[in-house]
Amino acid sequence: MSMPALNEAPQIDAGQVISLCGVRKQFGGYRVIENLSFDVRDGEVVTLLGRTGAGKTTVLNLIMGTTQPDGGSVSVAGFDPFRQFKALKGRLAVSFQTDRLLPWRTAAQNVELGLLILGEDRKSARAKAAQWLARVNLGGAEDKYPHELSGGMRQRVSLARALAVDPKLILLDESFSQLDHITSQSLRKDFCNVARDFGKTCLVVTHRIDDALEMADRVIVLGPGARIMLELPMALARKDERIRDDYRSQIETALGGHQDGKDH
């Protein structure tokens, strides 16, 4: 069977934005990912939850195309992210644990950077940057530099930067883990409101149960070797506190009774 051209997306289920099938990855003699399969569908917010060492970061790197699986297949927006890395430019955005803002650029200049790289003219990019800062509740902070912003505000700038390029997929890598409880809770809520208003597909990688319970349409709990220990749809849990408490208990059990999954 012939392989697709590097910028040509193969024919797959149009509703799948991420698809992993039978993925394996090994570093040296250590099998980080045993045999992982899951999908993330268009407009879905999925949380990949696991303890340190469960393979979450490796899964994220496979999806971003920065590493190649030893076996199985990875598809993102219909492309092989490793072989067709350039084809995903502008289709995928990432917000990391640290905000990674450029200290010599203002909030608006940081947000517009991705747009400028994609060829948007400066006037249009600046207007979109201001709009997205307002959408993450940072209107009026356009001209402030990172050192003038709190940690939560800097992370909002980082999220606005990810959203501004209008990606098909947003990856959040422990984006709220360095924030205090109140700031983290507020930012999770605001981000989810924006993501759902604009129909964004999101994969949230985290070790914190609160991130999963408050953000996800579906939670996938990973154990060692990136084995799926538990998978839960969250629609009912968002409406019923008793179900949410039951899900928390199930997740804690799947994580081996580990309690470090809450905000502190």
Rank of each mutant, 00 (worst) to 15 (best):
F79S: 02
G71T: 10
T66Y: 14
T67Y: 09
F79C: 04
S75W: 15
F96Q: 08
L88G: 02
V94E: 02
G71I: 11
K89S: 06
D99C: 15
T106S: 05
G72R: 00
V76I: 12
K89I: 00
Q97M: 04
P103N: 09
P103Y: 11
Q84I: 03
D70P: 15
Q68A: 07
T66G: 08
A87N: 05
R105D: 00
F82H: 14
R83Q: 13
V76N: 07
P81E: 06
F85R: 14
F82Q: 09
K89D: 00
W104P: 05
Q68C: 12
G71W: 07
S73H: 08
Q97K: 10
S75G: 12
L88M: 10
L101M: 10
D80P: 14
P69K: 00
A87V: 06
F85L: 13
S73M: 06
V74Y: 12
Q97H: 12
F82K: 09
A93F: 05
Q97L: 02
D99A: 15
K89Q: 05
V94D: 03
L92F: 14
A87Y: 05
P103W: 13
S95V: 15
L88S: 04
K86T: 01
R83D: 13
P69F: 01
R91S: 03
L102C: 08
G90A: 00
K86G: 01
G71H: 14
V74A: 06
V74S: 08
G78A: 01
A93G: 01
D70V: 13
T98M: 08
L101W: 11
W104K: 00
S73P: 11
P103K: 09
A87R: 04
P81Q: 06
F96G: 07
P69C: 00
G72S: 01
D80V: 06
T67M: 10
D99E: 14
V76R: 07
S75N: 13
D70L: 12
A87W: 02
V94A: 11
K86I: 01
R105M: 02
P81R: 07
P81H: 10
T98P: 10
L88I: 08
L101Y: 11
D70R: 07
F96K: 06
S75M: 13
A77Y: 14
Q68T: 09
D70Q: 05
R100H: 08
R91I: 03
T98F: 15
A77G: 14
G90Q: 02
Q97I: 06
R83E: 13
P81C: 11
T66C: 10
K89R: 09
S95C: 15
S95G: 15
L92I: 14
R91V: 03
Q68G: 08
Q84H: 06
T106L: 01
D70T: 10
S73G: 09
K86D: 05
F85D: 12
G78E: 04
V74L: 07
G90C: 01
L92Y: 10
F79W: 04
P103A: 08
Q84P: 13
V74T: 01
W104G: 00
V76K: 08
R105G: 00
P81K: 07
